[in-house]
Computed example of a mutant assay.
Amino acid sequence: MRQKIVAGNWKMNNTLDEGLKLTSEIINMISDEVRGDVTVVLAPSFVHLTRVKSLIKDTKKVHLAAQNCSEHTSGAYTGEVSAPMLASVGVEYVIIGHSERREYFNETNEQLARKVDIALANDLIPIFCCGEALEVRENGLYHEFVCNQVKDSLFHLHDDQFSKVVIAYEPIWAIGTGKTASSDQAQEMHATLREYIGERYGTDIAEKTPILYGGSCKPDNAKELFACKDVDGGLIGGASLKSRDFTDIIKSF
């Protein structure tokens, strides 16, 4: 059975006090309410990492992620944060290739491949994001587009390396646009990705690879999404900033 994962990406939100309050609420709700075998991942801002780690260190279900890492190990890269730095403060996961990083910071597939490599070299688990914009969806080329993102950034990995990667599919056209991706559309793309991974790495690895859904997953649609055969959880944005909503999503399996 594949790992079930619900990851909360706080993006550029929460002061330190707000973040610590949110973390404490989530920990308490999970302890009281969540009985299933779900891996919960919190991805706060860099400035929250050490303090959030101190709150979750005694929990078994909650793990720490960074929202990004540099493609460089160290050096004169002002403002960047390296994978070794993240590992040194207890980070376990790192989000790589989020649609906002691709769009606003012009991150390329090749650059993301280097980030994946450096994350794995420092024992961080990449949550690799892929997905298409509305124009790509409407011209019907979205299968090829998303699969190419995966191929260009991940298919250089050896089997044992790829086996450590988590995929997150983000239908960018369904995030903040007023359009909604149905569970059928999510399942279709997840199944396509799993089949494509299987062509490169074999059925066994493909069937074990967690593929998360990252397109406006909320308490009212999470159960339907998570019931899909190839949807193994969610990369949650706005709803992860509310402890009640985030916990209800975790309970949707």
Rank of each mutant, 00 (worst) to 15 (best):
R102H: 03
E103V: 15
E103P: 11
Y104H: 14
Y104E: 11
Y104S: 07
N106E: 06
N106C: 09
N106F: 13
E107K: 00
E107G: 00
E107W: 00
T108I: 01
T108M: 00
T108Q: 02
N109W: 01
Q111F: 02
Q111I: 01
Q111S: 07
L112M: 05
L112V: 00
A113W: 01
R114F: 00
R114H: 02
K115I: 00
K115T: 01
K115W: 01
V116C: 04
D117L: 07
D117P: 00
D117R: 03
D117F: 02
I118S: 00
I118M: 03
L120S: 10
L120P: 11
A121N: 09
N122I: 08
N122H: 13
D123K: 15
L124T: 05
L124M: 08
L124G: 03
I125Y: 03
P126M: 10
P126Y: 02
I127S: 08
F128Y: 00
C129V: 04
C129H: 03
C129N: 04
G131K: 11
E132I: 04
A133T: 14
L134I: 12
E135F: 11
E135D: 14
V136S: 06
V136D: 10
V136F: 13
R137T: 08
E138W: 13
G140Q: 03
G140S: 05
G140L: 08
L141M: 11
L141F: 12
Y142P: 02
H143Y: 15
E144N: 12
F145R: 12
F145Y: 15
F145H: 14
F145E: 06
V146I: 12
V146D: 05
Q149E: 02
Q149W: 06
V150K: 04
K151S: 02
K151I: 00
D152T: 07
D152F: 03
S153W: 00
L154I: 01
F155N: 01
H156P: 08
L157N: 04
L157M: 09
H158M: 05
H158V: 09
D159I: 12
D159T: 12
D159A: 13
D160R: 08
Q161M: 11
Q161S: 12
F162V: 09
S163F: 14
S163A: 15
K164Q: 08
K164H: 02
V165I: 14
V166Y: 01
V166W: 02
I167V: 10
E170M: 11
E170Y: 10
P171W: 09
P171N: 12
I172L: 13
W173R: 08
W173H: 08
W173Q: 07
W173D: 07
A174V: 06
A174C: 09
A174E: 04
A174G: 07
G178R: 09
K179D: 13
T180G: 12
T180A: 15
T180N: 11
A181K: 14
A181S: 15
S183Q: 11
D184S: 13
D184I: 14
Q185L: 13
Q185V: 08
A186S: 15
A186I: 10
A186Q: 13
E188W: 11
E188Q: 14
E188T: 05
E188I: 11
M189Q: 13
H190P: 15
H190V: 13
A191K: 07
T192S: 09
T192A: 09
L193R: 09
L193W: 09
L193Y: 08
R194Q: 05
R194P: 00
E195A: 06
E195C: 03
E195Y: 10
Y196H: 12
